[in-house]
Design a protein around this nucleic acid. Structure first.
Lengths: 297, 297
DNA sequence: TCCATTCTCTGACTCTAGTCAGAGATATTC
DNA sequence: GAATATCTCTGACTAGAGTCAGAGAATGGA
């Protein structure tokens, strides 16, 4: 398997990587082209640009300077925070970006047209699979303070989705509580799943102290579904539960959350009789952990 | 499809490409690491190194200089041609190369271990598919002079394989002739398939002048099988035949060449009665081309 | 209000990658 | 044997990519 990955890396970097970037950049430097592309049609602030591209602030400043003096971008100042500068593409910047776009198409075409129809279909399917799985491998699950803005936003998105999907909407104050202090050690734990800096899911535990813990706040952002993020969050929670000495996990869920129910079933959760009076729940599940907890990787 | 390819390129270059090379190089510059790797365990001459890596001779000379002064490689002079310099890895050069090797393994592991067993299997399968198809797309089929060393070597390899596979060996002088002048315009045509500078297959036409042409010298190197090279060569020959006004293609083949027979059948060749007295043949095929020849891409 | 922090910008660097022209040694061809 | 070609090496460049330190403006918290 390792060999396969290495062979793949080799072939792909030679045929797609270097070639690609060099070719696309052509009239600009590589850095300029990357920035031009990353700014996007709607513009963005310099800070997020720096984070997304992982550039030094001085370097980025200079890159933007040359792009601005070439008339491709217009810089401005954020209204909310006047330290932050915003950039957007000018008309000619958009045109330039269109050219990059087109070149990218040409390059993709050049690859595809060497193949038969059947090979093309197979290539695209395999590329989709590789892309999805590499993205999945980029997801990192880690503990977070429930009060952190990131965590707050994630929980908010979770509530918003529940409100959208539940037949009668969702009001957290009616539901069983899971406040900040209940989801922070030692009472509980909150984990977030991150993908390239963006939060794409969460999950939490509430320890009961009697060897039992509730699984709460299980959620995956729509953009990250199908990557196995939910399964990873759940596995992470189970590991943490076992470490904390909670060998029985309990959870309740609403009948409209079919993916979640599927996940719980396939992860070994057994449906049990109602054990709480959560007003939004239709199903109650339980799982007894066994064996020693695997080490945290 | 184009979008799929572009998304793939994006994800892969970000996650595999840049990261990979930078990480692997670490203690050396990227160029040095590439050279160190490409020299290989047996050493090679500087010229082929230059061609394979596509480097300027001055630049390569300097890279080798630094590697030599670091004691990683030893330079020498070719015995056959004293202009040509050879390089080989020293003991510590081999060790250094081993480190690069190991890092590559570590990197591959890091990717795999983020995934579940099932995902891992799927990723490897998809990577294999992408790798194979991208390699296949890199194959270029083009016309060649039969007297060119490359063509000669290819035909020689073809004969060697026939000799290995035919029950009673193969002696070209007994077989129906296909000499240089018969395979060069206007009497015929020889095409070679090339993959990254290496010849990986051939095929030829012998025009009869009555709207018929023989397909000869169909061969694909073992290292390049399963990439659809044979099919591409055949399609290329058919295009050339049609352009030259030969609308019926004929060929004979030996019963041991099962892949070739499969290819002919699936490409629309119909088995017909013996039409030649080729001593090594067991099967005779024919195909009538229809429609206008597609443009040469 | 003051102090620490955040954000961008500027100057001064380093290192890599790569190009170009030409010199000198060696082969090949006529 | 002379002319031409091939191969490597050296010197002199350029441009890109990126780092580091610090200045100045703006903001947020005690």
């Amino acid at each position: 398997m390792v060999d396969q990955v290495r062979r793949f890396n080799r072939v792909v970097t030679q045929h797609v990587g270097a070639l690609n970037e060099r070719y696309l950049a052509r009239s600009h430097s590589l850095g300029e082209a990357r920035v031009l592309w990353e700014i996007g049609a709607e513009g963005c602030d310099m800070r997020s640009l720096r984070v997304r591209l992982g550039l030094d602030s001085g370097y980025l400043s200079r890159l933007l300077g040359t792009l601005a003096s070439a008339g491709l971008i217009a810089a401005g100042t954020s209204e909310r925070d006047r330290r932050i500068r915003t950039v957007r593409l000018t008309r000619s910047g958009l045109a330039e970006r269109g050219i990059l776009d087109e070149r990218s198409d040409v390059l993709a075409h050049a690859l595809l047209e060497q193949l038969s129809d059947e090979q093309r279909v197979r290539l695209c399917a395999a590329m989709g699979e590789v892309e999805r799985l590499i993205t999945a491998a980029g997801v990192a699950v880690g503990i977070s303070d429930p009060a952190h803005p990131e965590a707050r936003q994630c929980i908010r998105a979770y509530f918003a989705e529940l409100n959208r999907r539940f037949d009668a909407g969702f009001d957290p104050s009616v539901s069983i509580s899971a406040e900040d202090d209940e989801l922070a050690p030692p009472a509980g734990v909150l984990v977030l799943a991150r993908l390239r800096g963006r939060t794409v899911g969460c999950g939490a535990l509430k320890f009961h102290g009697d060897g039992r813990a509730d699984v709460k706040r299980m959620w995956v952002a729509e953009t990250a579904r199908g990557l196995g993020v939910g399964r990873r969050i759940l596995a992470d929670l189970e590991r943490r539960a076992a470490v904390a000495g909670a060998w029985t996990l309990c959870l309740e869920t609403n009948r409209t959350l079919v993916e979640a129910i599927g996940l719980y079933r396939s992860a070994g959760y057994r449906e049990v009789a109602r054990f709480s009076n959560e007003p939004y729940a239709h199903h109650w599940f339980e799982k007894h952990l066994v064996g020693t907890p695997p080490s945290t990787s």
